[in-house]
Write a protein that binds this DNA or RNA. Sequence first.
RNA 1: GUCGGGGUAGCUCAGCGGUAGAGCAAACGGCUCAUAAUCGUUAGGUCGCGGGUUCAAAUCCCGCCUCCGACACCA
Length: 597
Amino acid sequence: MPEHILVAVAWPYANGPRHIGHVAGFGVPSDIFARYHRLKGNHVLMVSGTDEHGTPITIAADKEGLTAREVADRYNQVIGDDLRNLGLSYDTFTRTTTLNHYQVTQDIFTTLYEKGYITRKLTLGAFSASSGRTLPDRYIEGTCPICGYTEARGDQCDNCGHQLDPVDLINPRSKIDGHPPIFRETEHFFLDLPLFAQRLQTWIEQQEHWRPNVRSFSLNFIQELKPRAITRDLEWGVPIPLPEYAQRDDKKIYVWFDAVIGYLSASIEWAKNAGRPDAWRDWWQNGQARHFYFMGKDNIVFHTVIWPSQLMGTSSDGRYAGSAQGAFAEVPLQLPYNIVSSEFLTMEGKKFSSSRGVVIYVHDFLSRYDPDPLRYFLTIAGPENQDTDFTWAEFVRRNNDELVATWGNLVNRTLANVYKNFGVVPQPATLTTPDEQLIANVETGFASCGALLEAARFKAALSETMRLATLVNSYLSEQEPWKVIKQDRERAATIWYVALRCVANLRILFTPFLPFSSQRLHDYLGYAGDLAGPLTFKEYTEENGMSHRVLTGDYTHWVGRWEAAVLPVGQVLREPQPLFKKLDLSLVDAELARMGS
RNA sequence: GUCGGGGUAGCUCAGCGGUAGAGCAAACGGCUCAUAAUCGUUAGGUCGCGGGUUCAAAUCCCGCCUCCGACACCA
């Protein structure tokens, strides 16, 4: 019975290009997971988009002399291209500036407001003297009232570590233009989180399959819940759907409130674009569906506390959830099943920082190297359980000594030999015990590697798959078919058949991790169809006349299945080429020099 | 400051109550079909520091050092 699996991927922020640390955290793991479940035959819906609201976008716009919308447009394109080129197989990768997203966000806001989950309160806010705009706490600097440090930020003093309020800073000044900020009262809307505390507690306690740190951290967090401001004094954002704010352009919904709603709105958009406007309910108003969220560790509370509160509060009400008919009627919106958060990737021992040049942008990387080696590195050496370090030397080593040497070489030696000596999948004679054992061992990968993937243990899953490739290399060393063929062509054909069948199985096992090279291998082996076919961009125009680009693909025709592969005797092979390139060590110095400049 | 998570072989990391593990690097040997790739064997650590609990501690508890993150307006 196929399951409905929602793969909800963190929304990259569109104030600049994304670096490889970002895609290590949310991108590659989520894609491996989605591809695996598609191979399993499950109904996968993988959604995300660029997150385009909030202060940083307006600041980037000011700096570049553009409008916020122009900045968002630019980086939506750049980021979308990057994700496509990395092979991230979204069903819908959209953006938060669509009409659809505005409507869904406003519906959730209105529903929560009418049900009393959103309240209003006067607060003291800081505003820029020059632009009149809100100044977020972190954009205000001044002297720390506790330790006297002169570069303290409005939210926290980096010297003594105390949490601060910008009003308390001595000689406060805007980090943007240096002028002192103006403090004045302003009304804001608050999501009343304490109203959800009990339900959150009960729910999180039941989530025993969450990673322990995610669960205990979240349980701890809800011990001291306070109402959370969900509006900002800012012209760039989703308008507040209340009459008195309809004409005002100075207060909008806070970016974090709308960004998480994107998981739902993108699903609704997907259904609309697919011509089946209610299809999203199969995932969202279906108690059997499982939702997996992928993000960096800095995002945990938004996905374990705030977004679940929004979902609980909305329940089966509002214009979208409340319009369900038949089996979906009155079914509340589905809560997350698992929160797969990653740690952070550092770069040559340092934190990524675009301003200090400690950065490798995805598009930069992919302009010089292939996507699969990057996917390999980010999976085998990525920040799955703890912060890990990217170094160019380690990237080259992992590529040459592991990916090329173990898997690439196994494929190449096998295909080259079979192609040269037989040209087709050779007819085997009776299989010996070692032959049968090897095939059986490799085929256990579907169970063992599959279980690890189910549990989102990607590093272990890929190690296991590599170990199976090593078994085949060992087998070839023992059987020495290149010697055998001189006396006994039939036995040599059998050995090569066994190796080839293992390679055909490994082709599937590697597909979630290495889709590009697996597709090429699929072709070399003479199979037809797409194992991991192309991703596409489509342009959609909404009722307001605005159009936007969506990264998508037709994954339903993909031919692979997560099960022992059939390798027909006599299938005609295509002339093979090496799957991966060996990298020259000299690139390490070249890349380091590039970064140093 | 408060809370949470790390600190394990030269390097990158796994293990998280029962005689220390993997990959790579190193040493030796086999093979030569394959992108000089591969296969086998060996060597290598008092598991951040100091206490404690236990028959038994990387593994649990306490303190300290250090790194990372969260702590309502950066995502």
